[in-house]
């Protein structure tokens, strides 16, 4: 593996959507009472897409993101990531999938406090068996890509919140996933740092073609995304990608017949015009 290429397409040779969820539910059994965090969500993430998920607190946004990121498995429904059905994979295959297909950015950064920026960023590659020297090389390139070439050996407590979140983004990108999932990436940042992080995410999407799905409470941030998805009470209430399509049955996109069809990449631009 070499330095980041301009295109985000070097994963498996599947040409379908990066992530495809059909009628996915997720229930938590709290010893008697069952919480239905997601109640039948269908959601497709296309290559190179830029989508914002909004919705009130507790509506299931994080639960959805965890499913998309293979951190969790749906209770029912079909979830395909990188063309593979998540429910058919064992733990180790799922770990491998989340290692290669998606990069995850958390609201609270989640950096290892005692490790340097380089070591933090190289972590996903460790679990891929990449050699140490190559890990450092790729981590450095990834840190430069988010403008942190001067913070390579800093530890998290030696960096500002904005810088820490950029380290987290570099870490999410270092494995060259096709999708970047960011759950309220600016939630812990002030306006200026938040704006900087958003600028980097947009730049990565535009220049490297990485699909970005982010959760945000900020209407302005959401407004700048080409596609907005509103979640409420565990359901998708509104998805601009579906509205933009002339003859699509809204909220009910069956596998293989939805936005994955040929010529669909145009849909992103339609959605983008709303911004």
């Amino acid at each position: 593996m070499t330095a980041p290429a301009p295109s985000g397409v070097d994963g498996p040779a599947t040409s379908g959507p990066a992530i495809e969820a059909v009628d996915v539910t997720r229930s938590y059994d709290l010893g008697g009472t069952v919480v239905d965090a997601l109640q039948g969500v269908s959601f497709v993430v296309e290559e190179g897409e830029y989508a914002a998920i909004v919705g009130p607190s507790g509506s299931g946004k994080s639960t959805l993101m965890h499913l998309l990121g293979c951190l969790d498995r749906p209770t029912s429904g079909v979830l395909r990531v990188g063309g593979r059905d998540v429910l058919e994979l064992d733990d180790s295959e799922l770990a491998d999938l989340r290692n290669r297909e998606v990069g995850f950015v958390f609201q609270s950064f989640q950096l290892l406090p005692r490790s340097t920026a380089l070591d933090n960023v190289g972590l996903p590659l460790l679990y891929r068996g990449t050699k140490r020297a190559e890990r450092r090389e790729l981590a450095e390139a990834s840190l430069r890509a988010v403008g942190l070439g001067h913070r390579l050996t800093h530890r998290p407590n030696q960096m500002s919140g904005g810088e820490q979140q950029r380290v987290a983004i570099a870490r999410a990108l270092v494995g060259r996933p096709r999708i970047l999932l960011a759950d309220e990436p600016t939630g812990n940042l002030d306006t200026r740092n938040g704006a900087e992080v958003m600028r980097i995410l947009e730049e990565l999407n535009a220049e490297q073609g990485v699909a970005v799905v982010l959760v945000t409470h900020d209407d302005e941030v959401a407004g700048r995304a080409r596609r907005q998805v509103r979640v409420r009470d565990g359901r998708v209430e509104r998805d601009t990608a579906l509205e933009a399509r002339p003859a699509g049955p809204a909220g009910d996109a069956p596998a293989g017949a939805g936005p994955a069809a040929a010529g669909e990449p145009g849909a992103r631009h339609v959605a983008g015009q709303q911004a």
Binding site: G69, D91, A95, R98, Q110, P124, Y127
Partner: peptide
């Protein structure tokens, strides 16, 4: 626990 969760989120398998 958090560190372990993070490592697993980044692709560490049970075995790792």
């Amino acid at each position: 626990t958090k560190e372990i969760g993070l490592r697993k989120a980044l692709g560490a398998r049970q075995r790792d």
